[in-house]
Structure formats: C-alpha cells, structure tokens
Design a protein around this nucleic acid. Structure first.
Lengths: 192, 192
DNA sequence: GATTACGTGTGACAAAAGGCACAAAATGCG
DNA sequence: CGCATTTTGTGCCTTTTGTCACACGTAATC
C-alpha cells in the first residue's frame, strides 16, 4: 500500500468543481486518511453515519442484511468514488447498511460536521457540496433506470461493458446480489 | 384551476432549508408559473433541459421512448415535487426524456441560469440548492433499492402502501412500465 | 500436506413473468 | 346519446428466473 496522497483527493475535488487553492486546501485538510484491511468494516449497520469518505485505493462494498439474514449488496465504491450512507447521514437515524473493504483499502474521512461548517462559511465549499450531490444524483438516476427497465441478462451485459473492473474484482455471489438476481442466474449468464 | 400561489412554493422551499425572508423571496421571484393542460408536454426529448420545475397542482410524467418505440416511464412528479432532467441539465446534452402533464397541471419554472446565479451570490440559496439535491438523492437511492431487490409483486405492494394516490391517478399501462413489469403482470397483481 | 470450508458451475424441476389473442369495460368525441 | 377508440382483464402457452441438490476446484487452516 502506497502512502496516503492528498493530491489524488485534490484532483477529484477539482474535477467536480473548479475551486481556488485556498478552498481546496480547506477541503483536503478537513479529511483524515484511514487504512482498512480486506473485509474490515468502515461503518457498521446500527450506528448513525457521521462521515463522508473518498476511496483512494481498494474498494468498499455497501450491503444490508435482509430479514432472512442474507446480504443485499447495494453498491460498490471503487477508486475515486465518494461514499457515505446518505439516508443515515441526513436523517440521523441508525444505518441499515454496512460499509466494508473488499480489498486492502485507503480512504479519506470527512466528519460530517466539518463539511457542514465549511459549506456554511465558504461559498466555494458549498459549491463543491452541490456539485458532488449533483454528480451522485445523476449516477443514482442512471442506476435506477438500469434496474427499472433492464432484465438480468441486459444488466450483466451492461455492467460488463461499463464496469469490467468491477466484474473482475467482486465475487460472483456478491455481484449477483448487486445485480438483483440469483447467484446461479449470473453464473449461467457468465458461461453463456 | 386555482390561481398560482407563491405561498405553496415558499413553504416547500422552507421545508427543505430554513431560509431568511429575503432569500426566500429571491428564490420565489426567480420562478414563473406555467399552466399545462392534460397531455401537454412541458419538456420534449431532443432539446437540452434548461429549467427546474416545481409542481403545485396536477402531476408530471417523465418517460423515454425505447428502440422499439415503446414508452419507458421513469417516474411521476406529484404535487409538491421538484422536477427536471438532471442528466441533460448537468451535461448540456439533448434530453432523452419527455416531461408531460398527466392532468391539468400548474408548475413553477426556474431557468437554470437564474438558479446558478443565485447559488453563486447567496450562501443561503446555495444551501437550498444543496438541500434539494440531497433530498432528491436520498429519494433516488431508495428508488434504486426498490428496483434492485424487489420483485414485481413486492414492488406493487410497496407502491400501494407508500403512494396509494399514484396508483389511483395513473393508468395501469403507465404504472406497469414505471414498475418495470408487463402490463398484464400488473393487471394480474391488481386482481389478486 | 491433509483436511476443511467456501465459492462456483451445472442439472432438474418449480415458480414467476412475459407475450399473444381476444373479450369486456371505460373513455373520448361528434 | 351512440359510435369509435383506448384501456383493461384474462386464458393459454412460452420463456425466463429461482430453488434445490450436488460435484468440483480453490483457498484457508492446522
């Protein structure tokens, strides 16, 4: 694992919202690096989520346990993604989901309050916040359409085309759960 | 149709983000009322989307035409919702979706640039923008889970529980498309 | 290095959903 | 009001997906 490197973070922020050097530094300083080993939990269901993370290396898996105790995978956050449990973050309710590293992983952690303070005092920081949410919302809308109007075969084909890295790095059973199909169905789609 | 009434709009804004009277007025003044008759298009696929709307009365349907020419319903915006085509709004690309009134409808329209100007000059307006996006993102995440991990029967039951008004007001074929199932499947679920 | 646990592929069957056809009901329009 | 058009419900059959069972290979453990 290479040493934490604020430059990657800074680049990701700049990419979302052109920001002055001063505001950029404010945002970067507000985040602390955190290293996770494979399968280590970054955030556990049951606790309120109080942070936003940025994945520099490795990846995170967000999942929820259903009534039967099976894991429902919500999504994966690969390198260069911003992750949080927005539901818990906004509602202050305990999280239903767990964030876990799928590989040795390096993230940057922002305490929620730190971000809110910045947003309230700096219009540039606020703009970054808006841009980040806008970007996430756009992705999430695409995600919804993906599940709303595609069947299992189309979903797998689409994922293979758009995110081949994800298909490589994640186990078949976790991918199947993410794709909303039975493990066996995905296994058959793969061998077809 | 009752006359346009800024108070409903003001209330919706306040509910998202506590805002001073001055900022609130700025936001309200920036929007213009617009009346639509049933089936009238508010925004057509092919044009870039340059506005954000708030639905005061009636409802909007967002749909896309697939390769076969069938309409894929993305979602419905009932009273008190904020609507736009975020993909087009952010990317400046022509829209793939059309927004159409499902009933005689009254909306408030914000030109995108007006909002951006406000966001750039007022930290309170920027906060409203962030709150709105956060709220929409939260809803959209729920929406994704809904399609990702629920089957047709669960989806219908859930919708009936959470949004009975929608089920009443929208035709079966449009609802089915929205729910990601065949018209016949929904028809059978209803009579079960 | 043998043993165990786990993840994955695959066959057989059951259940669910889709597609087509058509009749009944509702809606729109002159 | 009555005719035409659209929408909805339903039977029949096909296709797809899920479930269960088990074999195989790989990786973890002692």
């Amino acid at each position: 694992m290479t040493a934490p490197n604020t430059e990657i973070l800074a680049k990701a922020i700049q990419q979302l919202s052109a920001t002055s050097a001063a505001s950029l530094a404010q945002l970067c300083i507000a985040a602390a690096p955190r290293v996770l080993s494979k399968r280590e939990a970054l955030h556990r269901a049951g606790k309120p989520c109080e942070s936003v993370w940025f994945v520099e290396k490795g990846y995170l898996r967000a999942f929820q346990a259903d009534e039967a105790g099976r894991e429902l995978n919500h999504c994966f956050y690969l390198e260069n993604s911003f992750a949080t449990d927005l539901v818990s973050l906004r509602t202050h309710q305990p999280s239903v989901l767990t964030l876990q590293a799928g590989e040795p992983t390096l993230v940057w952690e922002w305490p929620k309050q730190r971000l809110l303070d910045l947003y309230a005092t700096s219009i540039e920081a606020a703009q970054f916040g808006r841009m980040l949410l806008g970007y996430l919302l756009l992705k999430q809308e695409r995600q919804t359409r993906f599940f709303q109007h595609y069947g299992p075969a189309e979903r797998y084909a689409h994922l293979l085309r758009e995110q081949p890295a994800l298909v490589q790095r994640v186990s078949v059973s976790q991918l199947a759960s993410y794709l909303g199909m039975a493990r066996e169905t995905l296994s058959r789609l793969r061998s077809a």
